[in-house]
Design a protein around this nucleic acid. Sequence first.
DNA 1: TTTCAAATTTTACAGGCGTAAAATTTCTAC
DNA 2: GTAGAAATTTTACGCCTGTAAAATTTGAAA
Lengths: 341, 341
Amino acid sequence: MATHRVKTMMELAKVSGISRPTLSKYFNDPDSVRVSMRQKIQTAVEKYDYRPNIFAINQNRKLTKTIGIVVPYSSDPFFAEMVRMIERRCIDAGFWPIVFSAHGQQELENYALATLQSLRPAGALIAPLGRGSDFESVERFTKDVPTIVFDSNVAVGQGFVGSNNRQSIGLIVNYLCRTGEPPCFFEMAPVNPNANKRRDAYVRTMEELGHEPMVVQVNRSGWGFEEIGLTEGNRLIAERSLPSETILCSNDRLAVGLIAAAYQNGIQVGFKEGCSLRIAGHDDHPWSQFTCPPLTTVAQDYHAIAEHSVELLFDIINAKAPAKERTEVLFEGTLVMRESA
Amino acid sequence: MATHRVKTMMELAKVSGISRPTLSKYFNDPDSVRVSMRQKIQTAVEKYDYRPNIFAINQNRKLTKTIGIVVPYSSDPFFAEMVRMIERRCIDAGFWPIVFSAHGQQELENYALATLQSLRPAGALIAPLGRGSDFESVERFTKDVPTIVFDSNVAVGQGFVGSNNRQSIGLIVNYLCRTGEPPCFFEMAPVNPNANKRRDAYVRTMEELGHEPMVVQVNRSGWGFEEIGLTEGNRLIAERSLPSETILCSNDRLAVGLIAAAYQNGIQVGFKEGCSLRIAGHDDHPWSQFTCPPLTTVAQDYHAIAEHSVELLFDIINAKAPAKERTEVLFEGTLVMRESA
DNA sequence: TTTCAAATTTTACAGGCGTAAAATTTCTAC
DNA sequence: GTAGAAATTTTACGCCTGTAAAATTTGAAA
């Protein structure tokens, strides 16, 4: 069966006795040819190990089968997980996902968008850097490519899918207040809209419950959240400047660092007798169950967000008309009670 | 300056009064045209916001500027970090990196390789799944594309760059033996050559030091290392079947899970007075410094591995001749002493 | 067997750029 | 100012597939 390999569709047409347009039709949509023909083609394709030239294909198609995925930081477990789910859905739907990470840098986000744009993708799913984004560039991109924004609600694209921070923060603040001392809120300089929404949600919930909001903002930025949690946690502990013995972190990665700081200072973390600090997070990152103690947090609905983002994008692509209205979909968080708070 | 956008090189030639072949030459290598011409072109390109069509370009070039990067699991912090460094180097060298993750699945690794191959990349840097790889597929890929293998030494491609496990494991085993009870070795069913090499290195070093090797292998596989460390750690502790109070884990992620297990069983981990278990890892993952207690481990030289892999690949690409001999380069690990052992 | 719609083949052109060869212009050195 | 080299332009063809339109064949129902 190891016949010489065939490199063009024309050659395949010759050796298989099938016309080239029919082959072309088949590769565009295997179901568009008769069953008998389909099988004949499949046999020939395998026999001659033929694969269409991606570049030639996309040169003439108005719409490629490429779906761009752009995330701000690919090693962040939240995004890593999102990417995995999104990729899977795209492949299953016959699309060709291609992933870019901005690695936390505006320059690289712009590069990714420019590169992606020149690939003329059918659509894109992007989680912008947020505050670090070059808004003009992102907007220009979305003017050209059907785009769904997820996680960080930058006001561009045909839609947004994310978490309902108001609800999820409300949930955990309520829990923390009911089970002990009302929490203070630990955050760094906000890097994206989520961070702001979470702080605001914290403040509002505390006020609703009749407590004084206590926001501890440290003047740090970047994507090394754990390191910030550790360093600043050490400082706050040394200065004894934490306004509460219950600390709600703006996200799990910050909490991971803070827990490390507590440990290194000999402070027992947890909700049980003998513990002097309660620490909670937000997101339910994959590693949050492995902290010591395991982290109490609010889970974002990863699956729903990924699923819905992709569905929304496919709808827009298939509609072939830019949605007249930017849709926003928010999923609710669920409380995950572990040992830390 | 917001003139109407120009979409083809021909149009750009018309509006700028520069011939198309010269433009083509410029885009292939800006240095191949005179300075005055270069500036004229750059001005026109910006004015008309022109970007060459990637598909049309690559259709005719024998060699594209694409560099494929394939990793077994993009959310593993080791690979996430490697990808970041490799991407950066490629971009700086004027190449176009494109990343694929196998997400731990053979099927997806094959898909990634096939997709990549049809992009006709100038070269590829791949970290195979290892045992989970479809060797035939990987080998077929490397026959077609100049490839450097990193991390997991599967015997394909033009070269390999990785860590000297013999040395690094020797280092930490020595350290552990000098500072306390000789370690047992905790591993799961090996997923790649590294795992085997590390165990063998452990056994040999122990023998050299006159100690009885104690390998604890748990019959689990997959990429959820922390979970395995936690679950199996809990079991081993409950059964009291750990052969030593010093445990060297085959990698940091396993150690993270094991530390969590110890914590949850009320066991103090560390090298200090009052601790009853010492736990060490291998790799120095980004989050190993945030465990409780911080993890003692051996650092792989991420930077050197990334750097050298890329250099090697560029050498091969530029030589335009397949290396007659497969080169193997190993970098040494360095001991990172923290609190856990 | 006839009939007609559906599938396939034939023919032909388009897409945007690489690239080769010959003709022309521009620059550098004398 | 001029020769000679280097850069640029002109001209023309090729890459591999998409796709449209007309001609032909195929298949299944009547």
